[in-house]
């Protein structure tokens, strides 16, 4: 059952962000939540390893992007290769 005033999103974490957290998890977030709120709740240390890439349903998102029921939010620190 869904809590009133909350909705569910999927959070996927990558690279160092998985350490001490998780890779893939569903989470309830309060109505009106934006990407930045989720990042804050994950206690990501922006000084040490700032968020490099935010993907919201496979498209690049921003800190203030609004979230909706069923969204998939993927978070990466700065990464690269080639």
């Amino acid at each position: 059952m869904r809590k009133a005033g909350y909705f569910t999103i999927t959070i996927r974490l990558f690279a160092q962000y998985r350490e001490g957290r998780f890779a893939d998890r569903e989470r309830e977030v309060p109505d009106g939540a934006v990407v930045g709120d989720v990042i804050k709740s994950l206690e990501i240390d922006e000084d040490r390893l700032a968020v490099g890439i935010i993907l919201l349903n496979g498209r690049h998102g921003k800190m203030d992007s609004a979230l909706e029921e069923g969204d998939v939010l993927s978070l990466f620190p700065r990464i690269g290769g080639g």
């Binding site: 996927r12 990558f14 690279a15 160092q16 390893l49 700032a50 490099g52 890439i53 993907l55 496979g58 498209r59 690049h60 993927s74 990466f76 620190p77 700065r78 990464i79 690269g80 290769g81 080639g82």
Partner: peptide, 24 residues
Amino acid sequence: HPVAGEGLKAFGTAILVNILSEAG
């Protein structure tokens, strides 16, 4: 630099697999 100084050492270039798949 976070990529050149840390990321590539820790994960190699295959770190790109997941992000490319996530981004379609």
